[in-house]
């Protein structure tokens, strides 16, 4: 993905004249950044959990994600071999799912992060292993805000 920002928008900071009579200007520069924080947070609130966490693309959005609570009706966490992954795209309408692959290594930090801000209707975790990572994840389950 090699398209530069300059191709997508006028040079940063360049202003566009919108009303020549009144001399009002609107800036092209970072319109998202210009939104009040509660609106940025509102936009985030509509993202599925994975995109929400991935959208922490700069310090400001990292802070906004950390500061706002959200609700996930049903979260599934599955660990399996890449070869066995049987994700059905239709399922995204039923629940949100995080895949962990046996072939990869993970940090439990994200799980902790989720436990701090998410209210979760039901959490369904299937992990297979006895590594430090697995122990950490298991010990964190009690920290979740679960509906039942």
């Amino acid at each position: 993905f090699q398209m530069s920002l300059s191709k997508l928008s006028p040079p940063l900071g360049k202003k566009r004249r919108i009303d020549s009579k009144k001399g009002d200007y609107v800036s092209y520069k970072f319109p998202f950044l210009a939104l009040p924080n509660e609106l940025k947070s509102h936009v985030f609130s509509f993202l599925p959990i994975k995109d929400r966490l991935r959208a922490r693309v700069n310090k400001m959005l990292y802070a906004i994600e950390s500061d706002s609570k959200y609700f996930v009706k049903k979260l599934l966490i599955r660990e399996m071999s890449i070869a066995d992954c049987d994700f059905n795209p239709a399922d995204i309408f039923k629940h949100q799912i995080i895949w962990l692959f046996e072939e990869k290594s993970y940090s439990s930090d994200l799980f902790k992060k989720i436990s701090q801000n998410a209210f979760i209707g039901s959490l369904d975790i299937r992990l297979s292993g006895s590594s430090q990572f697995h122990k950490e994840v298991c010990s964190m389950i009690k920290d979740f805000n679960l509906e039942e």
């Binding site: 970072f30 994975k50 991935r54 700069n58 310090k59 290594s105 930090d109 994200l110």
Partner: peptide
């Protein structure tokens, strides 16, 4: 239209966290 303002260390930390996603 946001620029990445993380340090290399912060970026590495987020990448590690986001391996889940």
């Amino acid at each position: 239209q946001l620029e990445c303002d993380f340090t290399e260390e912060e970026l590495a930390e987020i990448r590690k966290e986001n391996a889940w996603c």
